[in-house]
């Protein structure tokens, strides 16, 4: 009898940390949603601008059956992934080249330092004039913003190889390719992983911005359409959708990052 009684206690004790880890954020979110619901239902927050959370959820569920959500989400995600692929691919290729060839990087540094801080959004008028208002415009803006975010860490990463490792390579007469393949590229990878995670957020921001401003199909377009149609619940539903999309990709990239750091024996690979 005592054994039977003590068993659940022991089990609860061992599983408590994990339960707490999951429960705390869930409770935090639930409290926030509950507070929003209470404040809007009691008209402390004007329900015209802030529809209650339950209504947003109901609208969102309703939208799931609608014809506009699927294509909007698809359009945004497609442009987003393409932008991520292009900016990371291009940023890595150019970054590795500039990281390895110091004179070239020194030559181009003023250009990079000038272009890097230019807010992508400031280019929207130019892009509309030159590229037009298709998804190519959003793609360009997103790639432009994320490219620098990838380029700079990759240059740093290629050069972060320990001096001793490079001396070892020289003393064993490793070929240039062996040095790049086994020392400089692996040293760069953790930097690239972090840059990719940042680029995933940046590209999403720029694409949704472009959709709102240039009125191209996608989540952003649905947000601004809902606003002009006086349907704030639907607007918030799409805002939540874009947030959820960001979370999903962030989790995926973070997982890759962790695995990479673990294989490099780096700290903080929890």
């Amino acid at each position: 009898m005592t054994a039977v009684q003590s068993l659940p206690v022991a089990r609860r004790r061992t599983s408590r940390p994990r339960v707490a880890r999951v429960a705390r954020p869930v409770v935090a979110v639930a409290v926030l949603i509950g507070a929003q619901e209470a404040l809007t239902r009691t008209d402390v927050l004007p329900a015209g601008y802030f529809p209650p959370a339950s209504e947003i959820v109901r609208t969102f569920v309703g939208e799931l059956g609608d014809d506009s959500l699927g294509p909007a989400l698809m359009s945004t995600v497609r442009t987003w992934l393409l932008a991520l692929l292009v900016s990371v691919g291009l940023g890595t290729a150019v970054g590795v080249l500039l990281g390895l060839v110091r004179p070239l990087e020194a030559f181009l540094r003023p250009v990079i330092e000038f272009m890097r801080p230019v807010p992508s959004v400031a280019l929207i008028p130019l892009v509309v004039l030159t590229i037009g208002t298709g998804s190519g415009a959003a793609l360009f803006l997103a790639c432009f913003a994320a490219f620098w975010q990838v380029l700079v860490p990759v240059i740093t990463g290629v050069r972060s190889a320990p001096a001793i490792a490079l001396d070892t390579a020289r003393s064993y007469s490793l070929s240039t390719w062996q040095r790049i393949r086994w020392i400089q590229l692996p040293s760069m990878l953790p930097h690239l992983a972090t840059a990719t995670r940042l680029a995933a957020s940046t590209t999403l921001i720029l694409i949704v911005t472009a959709e709102i401003i240039i009125q191209m199909p996608g989540i952003g377009h649905e947000i601004t359409m809902s606003r002009s149609a006086g349907d704030p619940a639907r607007m918030y539903a799409y805002i939540a959708l874009s947030g959820a999309a960001g979370i999903v990709l962030n989790v995926l990239v973070r997982r890759i990052e962790k695995r990479l750091n673990a294989s490099h024996g780096l700290e903080g690979s929890r």
Partner: peptide, 22 residues
């Protein structure tokens, strides 16, 4: 005038001399 092919070095700092990802 450069690291000869016939030489090998063992450094004090073994941790950084080895490749952690290999």
């Amino acid at each position: 005038d450069g690291p000869p092919e016939d030489f090998a070095i063992v450094f004090q700092d073994y941790a950084r001399s080895l490749l952690p990802w290999a």
